[in-house]
Amino acid sequence: MLLFELIGNFFIEAVRSIGKISYFMFLIFKYLFFPRFYINSNFNYLIKILLSSIPIVALTAIFSGMVLTLQSYTGFSRFSAETAIPKIVVLTLTRELGPVLAGLMVAGRVGASIAAEIATMRVTEQIDALKTLNTNFYNYLVTPRVIALVIIMPLLVTFADIIGVYGGYLISTLRLGFNETIYISNTINFISFEDYFSGMVKSIVFGFIIAIMSCYHGLYTGKGSFGVGSATTNAVVSSSVLILVFNYILTEVFF
């Protein structure tokens, strides 16, 4: 009996959450199309996200590029296909690793911060205070973050692609003895617009997912410091899982 009760509760809770998120997204789209711009709030948020994410995205991308190159070399050298390494590195980074790693890093760095900030505002009644001051909190808090993340993510992913490829270039030329000019020409000649474009689409979708999940968990937080902690954890976990799920769906679309 208990098992049935648990399963039933799980499904009821899941359906309730889907309904709440759907309504939340409906409201976001409504206010995205009829926004009231708080210019300072939007601009400050863009700068804040960019500056706080660049170091962590750069570090993740350069080390991933370096590891990818070494591991590719291990495999390809077994059947004398080392020349394919620049192509594999650039393709993997632009289509997969750049968007996914940047997405996961931004979810951890920015998503957690958004969820914690909004949850704290909810717990300390600042959200209610916004309503009493004739300010729509979707316009003031949510849409600036959605717009900022959707604009910033493609820039961060482009940056991650470049840094990651540079990491691969460093290892290939300094450690594995590749010719610099040949490596660069192989990289540039191989990559197509479609590869870059698929990465950009992913980055926009991931930015949207991070913004939605972080704002949602922040707004629907539980009470007290425990509520803020749970909101932050849930925002990061749900963003990360959805990024991986949508990465597969989008890869199928661009396959």
Partner: peptide, 16 residues
């Protein structure tokens, strides 16, 4: 029109 109202919240609810 709730714009005719205002509220003093228990812990102030000032924007940090």
């Amino acid at each position: 029109d709730i714009n005719n109202f205002s509220m003093l919240f228990q812990y102030g609810a000032l924007f940090d």
